[in-house]
Amino acid sequence: MAKKRYQPPTQAGIGQFFDSIFIMALVFSSLYLSLKYEDLKAFLGFGGGEQAAGDAAASAAAVTWESLGQNPTMQAQWEKLGYTVDSAAEIINAKFDYSIDPVALIVTAVVVIGYFVFLFKVSDKEYRDVIGEKFDN
């Protein structure tokens, strides 16, 4: 038996306007979150992976190119780029911390996998509507 063809409602101009505003607001919310990245990390308890700033000021007296692990060629290139030993030390001493928080990792994995499972399940339901209308009429 042929399926009844679904007739979608016509969206008024004001509705289209609000939907456009909603999606724009959603995009800008993600921008806001990126601006508040450090706060977000603290809120979520994501400690691993961040780059620790080099504590150049504290050890300024002791800093030399040798202590920073820079050979004469590296030193020459830093200087050509306009850096002194102190300004280079801030960059060189900034290191990533790759310690992994297992709880954060599990939460992230569950969110990503759960998202795709949700997408494929719901999409399949909607896809059956599409195929049913397309081929059964």
């Binding site: 959603l26 979150l33 992230t108 998202y115 719901v122």
Partner: peptide
């Protein structure tokens, strides 16, 4: 995740909210 884990979750939140909006409103 190693370095930008919070960004990963933030963008997942965006797509999850957008998906719910689509299924229950736009569809």
């Amino acid at each position: 995740f190693l370095g930008y884990g919070a960004s990963l979750l933030a963008i997942m939140a965006f797509f999850i909210v957008a998906s719910v909006w689509f299924h229950f409103h736009r569809y």
